[in-house]
Design a binder for these strands. Structure first.
Lengths: 209, 209
DNA sequence: CCAAAACCTGATGTTTTATTCATATATCTA
DNA sequence: TAGATATATGAATAAAACATCAGGTTTTGG
């Protein structure tokens, strides 16, 4: 049962002439830009239309409503990412697990890099722009604490501390967040926790020898 | 220079009587509930007021505008998380790095678990509710690909594949995302990539012996 | 070259939302 | 208990946004 967009979100019509293909692209691009500059709150039909250099009416020719726009953007992005991952997996099948894992990392990384803007635009906390300073201060505060902690670890060399601190915190915060976002059951989620610990241990044993 | 809220977002006044303390708590709780059920788009002053069982006017007595509400919610959450991390770091300072890392994982994990609702409410993609099916399908598709890949890895036992697939993908997706969200410079970000690879290798070497 | 189809426009109607304020009620203090 | 202070109400206001549609322009195919 492959997903088809809910009716209320389906594109109204697909462009046939090249003129309108340009228009639709411009609308997508404008959506990204507005999302980046103003956040979801500033994403209004007219702000997008203006930025895209078209009239509001034109937008409604292709998208039944505002949400459909963001939906389509997301769909494009996720489909592209999924295709890349599938290709990578097909290529890496049969290779040692560590090679496969690295291939996966490369793929994910490059998709994110390629359209970093889009990634940022699509995945921003609901809190949005106003809270950036808040989040930044929080990050700095926490970073100070963890760096201080690792600096005093008897088994770490001074010159490794910053690198290891950065790696560990990024991996830990990212993994914890992702683990909870996936909506896994209790069993899987707690299994994940001990695997994450195992991973950090293995990393430290190999990196801080 | 410790952060003070931008003026436009500062609470209007702090409750002194217990009656109003109850009110403010109810407003916060209502904000979370609405955010969960309706997403940011459904977070209107009246929906929050209704859910909290107070009038709109009351809300404006304590918050100068709608954004201030979400801001305050975020501030509460982040401050609490930061304090927990600081405590943990103080306790774990001087212990071996792997012990410190595990303590950090426990702390983060417990804060997320404790108020999972709040976490979900605050960190949802701009796409919000409509796109949940989209994201779910995407996840399933990618999971199928990676599991297939690891199933064919010559160095993995069949009974380990699912566990390892879950761990690796969660760690990789979470880390990549977090790496890009942090706004690091090019140097740090590419250093991170190779550290992530090293981590996966070390994990596989120890887990799939 | 012409009619049909595709595409574009933007002022307009309608609905929704944020925010205020005059008024009423509760709590505190002396 | 009375006056002062804190808190609560919700109809009214004004601004903003969505979405439409009647009428124009451009492109296509024969």
């Amino acid at each position: 049962m492959p997903t088809t967009s809910p009716n209320k979100l389906k594109p109204r019509k697909t462009p046939t002439q090249s003129r309108s293909r340009v228009t639709v692209d411009a609308i997508f691009e404008a959506t990204i830009q507005v999302l980046l500059k103003q956040g979801m709150a500033g994403l209004t039909t007219s702000s997008v239309a203006e930025r895209a250099g078209v009239s509001v009416g034109t937008m409604y020719q292709y998208f039944p409503n505002k949400q459909a726009l963001v939906y389509a953007l997301n769909e494009r992005f996720l489909t592209r990412l999924a295709e890349n991952v599938e290709d990578t997996c097909a290529l890496a099948a049969g290779r040692p697990a560590s090679v496969a894992a690295e291939a996966l990392i490369d793929t994910y990384w490059s998709v994110k890099t390629e359209r970093m803007e889009l990634t940022h635009a699509l995945y921003r906390s609901v809190a949005e722009l106003d809270n950036e300073a808040l989040v930044h201060d929080f990050a700095a505060r926490v970073d100070r604490a963890t760096r201080g902690m690792f600096r005093e670890s008897p088994d770490l060399h001074a010159e490794d501390v910053d690198r290891i601190n950065l790696s560990l915190t990024t991996v830990i915060y990212g993994t914890v967040r992702n683990a909870f976002e996936r909506g896994l059951d209790q069993e899987n989620i707690s299994a994940l926790k001990s695997e994450l610990k195992a991973m950090c241990r293995a990393y430290l044993a190999s990196a801080a020898k």
